[in-house]
Amino acid sequence: MDNINVLIIEDKPSESDALIKGLQANNYTIAGLATNHKDALSLFYNNKVDIVIIDIFLNGLPDGLAFAESINADPNASKPFVFLTSSTDRKIFERAKLTKPFSYLMKPFNELELLYALELAFEKFYAQDDVFLSEEENTVISKEYLFVKKGKLLKKVDISDIIYIEVEEKYCNIITEKEKFVILISLTKILELFDSTVFCRTHRNFIANTKKITEIIPSDNLIILQGNHRVILSDKYKDIINKTYILK
């Protein structure tokens, strides 16, 4: 599991220091700190950023809003973001609301509020509401990553690293090259949100990454994956052989 990269756009050092301290204490990685609109854009496009915290007012101007509007305009580049504001000015909020999905953090905030705002931004951005706060799930799925909440911490997992997934009732065992962990998510949601050309069901309880298959042994109903992981191939899902053949 990797840390989440946060880009901070904040002109006041006192504020940004508090932010950085709070984020680092909760295992977030700071991808960069911009103090103006221009820097913010270059940092955003030149770094791997998972989420952006944007102060609405930069040097007295609502440049933060302008930045959010510009990254929102590019659907490929856009990332979740949280507005940081000390104002409850209705006009500003009405404008901010237009930059959907909209989440905000009111200054002054405590550490919990910061984490809560970030989690909310992920949920809203990937349109998977009420995941981190519910007891049934703890993972938000994007195209590239799984964002998993482990205790108080939020982590990400590169989906392409996943070798296979084993389903056990409400839980899913995720097996990557390096590690193995359990997440709370429903199977249907995985099937719905994962790339179906890459991840195929091989058994009622198994989903395999076809790119990680090293060998298929139909006679033994077995698939051997990278790192010598084995998953069962049931008769129902045997057409996976045809797909993998084409892929290879």
């Binding site: 409850t88 000015d89 209705r90 500003i92 909020f93 009405e94 609301k97």
Partner: peptide, 9 residues
């Protein structure tokens, strides 16, 4: 609240 300026959603 008195001046009805605050954001309320």
């Amino acid at each position: 609240l008195q001046t009805k300026q605050s954001f309320f959603e």
